[in-house]
């Protein structure tokens, strides 16, 4: 499919077209002094001047709290009903190339052997419209983990801003191609517009991913004092895991009254001490550095080795959100030694 062109003012039409066909349009918008992914109804609500949205768009494929079943006490036992999801077409506009690479990672976890259809059904109906970065900040490190603003992995439609206030549009996946065809009226033929210069974060020299993964593979590293030293300042708040586009941990809880209720699947964080606490009182990850080590293992050993996917896409959200500025790249650097 040849490249298309999208005028910024045509976003209005695109939103209207998506909504009128029953879909939902998610874009970066400003709320409480932050740029966040949220459902928008008009183009004017979209924020264009941002590095990344504060939240990852994973919440639209893997909601923060989700009912999986409802139950009610009946005269003869319990009435139990599984929740069905029938997701709408969901367009994520303004994702960045780094985070676009995260859905395949989440999908790998949610589909190995057992298939979590709450996830897959939503993801199947999600169109990721990536806008390549023209700005960035010091927390960005996509180039260090093998991605860049030019990566199209995970994007359904990849957009580059043009100098004349529009976007150069490339349909990447089959889903993306079908999307561009479905809304053909909104897109124009490419007019040869000049694209803006992309922001390319400098690759952090001291970091060697292969070395990190190799070192993590050797089980002996668990007892190295480096973990406690590097992560001593971690306060275990878990904010990193909530903004991370690849963190997938969740809890299952029952809520309701004595007569009826629902079972929910809620985001959880491996950084909490109660996360792995056994009822007996035993806790395999009883100190913060063990929990931090586990998250790092997940990103740089478990995801790459077990799920053949990226655990860390270098979006830098965890660095920006950390109240004690525990910078994962500083740990990566140390473990590259």
């Amino acid at each position: 499919m040849a490249d298309k062109y999208l005028k910024k003012e045509a976003l209005e039409k695109l939103i209207a077209a998506v909504s009128s066909s029953g879909g939902c349009f998610i874009a970066p918008t400003t709320d409480a002094r932050q740029v966040v992914f949220k459902s928008v109804e008009k183009a004017a609500d979209i924020t264009h001047d941002y590095v990344l949205a504060r939240n990852s768009y994973k919440e639209f494929v893997f909601p923060q709290t989700e009912v999986v079943a409802t139950f009610a006490v009946r005269q003869h036992g319990i009435g139990l009903t599984g929740k069905e999801v029938a997701p709408k077409e969901t367009v994520i506009f303004g994702a960045r190339p780094c985070e676009a690479a995260s859905l395949s990672s989440l999908r790998a976890v949610f589909t190995w052997d057992f298939i979590d259809e709450f996830y897959t059904k939503r993801e199947d109906r999600t169109i990721v419209m990536t806008v390549a970065c023209t700005t960035g900040d010091e927390a960005c490190f996509c180039t260090t983990v093998g991605l860049s603003p030019e990566s199209t992995a995970g994007s359904d439609v990849y957009l580059k801003e043009t100098a004349d206030n529009g976007y150069l549009v490339q349909a990447i996946s089959e889903k993306g191609k079908a999307f561009v065809e479905k809304y053909a009226a909104v897109f124009e033929e490419q007019a040869g517009a000049k694209t803006k210069k992309l922001f390319m974060p400098e690759k952090i020299k001291g970091i060697d991913l292969a070395k990190i993964t190799g070192r993590l593979k050797n089980t002996g590293h668990y007892d190295e004092p480096v973990w406690a030293e590097l992560t001593r300042k971690c306060i275990g708040c878990g904010a990193c895991t909530y903004v991370c586009p690849t963190c997938h941990c969740f809890d299952m809880v029952d809520e309701g009254t004595a007569y009826e209720g629902e079972r929910r699947k809620n985001w959880d964080s491996c950084q909490y001490d109660s996360f792995t606490l056994h009822a007996s009182g035993h806790n395999p990850r009883d100190t913060q550095f063990k929990r931090w080590r586990n998250r790092f293992m997940c990103k740089f050993s478990i995801y790459p080795d077990k799920f053949a996917s990226k655990g860390c896409v270098g979006c830098g959200r965890c660095v920006r959100v950390c109240p004690v500025r525990l910078d994962i790249t500083e740990v990566m650097e140390e473990l590259s030694k």
């Binding site: 976890v109 949610f110 190995w112 052997d113 057992f114 979590d116 089980t219 668990y222 997938h248 941990c249 969740f250 809890d251 299952m252 959880d268 491996c270 996360f275 792995t276 395999p284 586990n294 293992m297 997940c298 050993s301 478990i302 080795d305 077990k306």
Partner: peptide
């Protein structure tokens, strides 16, 4: 979860 999703039971990898 019991089915490899919730991220709790792993011992290392």
């Amino acid at each position: 979860c019991g089915v490899g999703k919730c991220g709790r039971c792993n011992v290392g990898d």
